Simulated assay, not measured.
Amino acid sequence: MKVAVLAVQGAFIEHEKMLEKLGVECIELRKKEDLDKEFDGIILPGGESTVQGKLIKELGMEDEIKNKIKKGLPVLATCAGMILLAEEIANDDKVHLGLLPVKVKRNAYGRQLGSFYTEEEMKGIGKVPMTFIRAPYVEAVKCGTEIMAVVNEKIVAVKYNNMLAMSFHPELNESDKIHKYFVDMIINNK
């Protein structure tokens, strides 16, 4: 099994370390040609969604990433990655990949000082640590999107077909439960 991690900006190395801990091979997606390599899943990491969105467009990666996900490639999207995937962004008229049927609010928890940590239940996984850093949340889910976790009455994790997206950063904690769940999604997709 091989997982590609979008490595143009953000917390991609932390995801790679988590996958390596699970014995999963990683490749980094830095340029369009990297998308020609064989891989079984993709991670869209946290970071700056505006910068990531601009870079994947400028590097000619946006359409190919979008097509692979549309065709069923399993994707794990965290924080900025969730914004990249979202069909609608509440406080921004710019949409990037637009595949996940949700309405997301960017920087919903405010600036860096609004960052926090908690442990809550995630459907099908159990209690997981959740680190929120200038995080978005899901304002509304659409047509068949499953709510996976709620914190303080806000939707912070969702699943839709081959897409698992969350507001928080599972890669910044010791727990590998979410990455294991994602690996299982890939195995079940084969």
Rank of each mutant, 00 (worst) to 15 (best):
M1Y: 03
M1N: 05
V3T: 04
V5I: 15
L6H: 00
V8D: 00
V8A: 07
Q9N: 11
G10R: 13
I13C: 12
I13F: 15
E14H: 12
H15F: 03
E16W: 11
M18A: 15
L19D: 00
E20N: 13
L22I: 09
E25F: 03
E25H: 06
E25I: 02
E28Q: 11
L29F: 05
L29N: 01
K31Q: 14
E33G: 01
L35W: 00
D36Y: 09
D36T: 07
K37N: 12
E38A: 04
F39T: 02
I43M: 03
I43H: 01
L44G: 03
S49G: 11
V51F: 07
V51I: 11
G53K: 02
L55G: 07
I56A: 01
E58P: 06
L59E: 00
G60R: 01
M61E: 02
D63C: 02
K68Q: 04
I69Q: 03
K70T: 04
G72N: 03
G72E: 02
A77D: 08
A80D: 05
G81I: 05
G81M: 05
L85M: 13
E87G: 14
E88T: 11
E88V: 04
I89K: 00
I89R: 00
D93T: 12
D93W: 07
K94Y: 09
K94C: 07
V95F: 06
L97S: 01
P101E: 07
K103P: 07
K103I: 13
R106T: 10
Y109F: 15
G110D: 06
L113I: 15
L113F: 14
G114P: 10
F116D: 08
F116E: 09
Y117C: 09
Y117H: 11
E119F: 10
E120M: 12
E121V: 02
E121L: 09
M122D: 10
K123T: 12
K123L: 15
I125V: 15
K127A: 14
M130E: 12
F132D: 05
R134G: 12
P136L: 06
P136M: 10
V138E: 04
V138G: 01
E139L: 08
V141W: 05
C143G: 13
G144D: 13
M148S: 10
V151H: 12
V151C: 14
V151M: 07
N152G: 13
N152C: 08
K154P: 04
K154V: 04
A157N: 03
Y160N: 08
Y160G: 01
Y160V: 05
Y160Q: 07
L164F: 13
A165T: 00
M166Q: 04
F168V: 01
H169M: 13
P170M: 02
E171Y: 01
E171R: 05
E171D: 08
N173Y: 09
N173T: 15
N173A: 15
S175W: 04
I178K: 08
H179D: 09
H179I: 07
K180Y: 06
Y181D: 02
F182Y: 13
F182I: 13
V183H: 02
D184T: 10
M185Q: 14
I187Q: 11
I187M: 09
I187C: 04
N188G: 11
N189T: 12
